[in-house]
Write a protein that binds this DNA or RNA. Structure first.
Ligand SMILES: [Zn+2]
Ligand SMILES: [Zn+2]
Ligand SMILES: [Zn+2]
Ligand SMILES: [Zn+2]
Lengths: 133, 133
DNA sequence: TTACATAATGTTATATTATAACAATTTAAA
DNA sequence: TTTAAATTGTTATAATATAACATTATGTAA
């Protein structure tokens, strides 16, 4: 069988699903993805969820927890999704990844009252985007 | 019919479900709650989800988005769940609400590169709790 | 090359989380 | 007391996610 899809580090299904999410201007849900890629031979939920899991693990995409939806990483710094922040419009579906060095530094070095530090965080801001204001 | 449950501002189902979550040392999932309150006459998912929605709306509980589970608010300041932060242990199921005035202030006043401010945020830190370290 | 281990895929079934829709009852308050 | 709003009860179903197992592809090292 052919195996020409491995010039980069993504497998066939991973690449198909990443391309779809990466082109999208909105967060995509797993079943929306599933319906979109059925013509490409990806027919069942586990195929989608496995690719999503791997892409999240490697930091190519992020899950927007409050929406159960996925966006491509727009931040070259967060390869492993250790420090993520998003702005989410409560009116339209828009989500933007926030890439703010000061914010990241502040939260990465944050320690709580017991002095505990954390190895990962996810921050979601909610409000109205420029268009919706 | 009796109506003696309304000394405070919670309805009967809301109070039953709040009490359960409030007593719990762990975040509770909706269907765990459902099974626990069936003896009290709450028999169907919508009854649970409606109570949860209301309790979240009024800030009595918070949803831990990464777990689809609910905890009682331990922070007298966040009546309406506008500014929430949690520490989540990746080993046991422990979740603590973080009540740090400086952090809250920093994030509440945060504005992104376009100068946009947000009216709400939710922050989840992940790491190992004291016990698991 | 061959053998082995690891990763990825395909497939069916099922588990888990959440909401729609509608009827009835309770509560607040005009 | 009558009206509106909130809450409850109920059945069905939608949406999200994983278990389990068989197969194929890929990378590595003898
Ligand atoms: Zn990113
Ligand atoms: Zn918007
Ligand atoms: Zn709180
Ligand atoms: Zn722990």
């Amino acid at each position: 069988m052919d195996k020409m899809y491995k010039e980069n580090n993504l497998s066939k299904n991973q690449q198909i699903i990443f391309d779809l999410i990466n082109k999208s201007s909105e967060p995509l849900k797993a079943y929306t993805i599933l319906f979109s890629v059925q013509k490409k031979g990806i027919k069942a939920p586990p195929q989608v969820y496995r690719a999503l899991d791997k892409l999240v693990e490697t930091g190519k995409i992020h899950k927007i927890e409050s929406k159960n939806a996925f966006v491509a990483c727009r931040n070259s710094n967060c390869e492993i999704s250790k420090a993520t922040a998003f702005s989410i419009c409560e009116s339209c579906e828009m989500v933007d990844e926030i890439n703010d060095a000061k914010l990241t530094k502040y939260l990465t070095s944050f320690s709580d009252k017991k002095g505990t530090k954390y190895k990962r965080f996810n921050l979601e801001f909610f409000g109205l985007c420029k268009k919706c204001k």
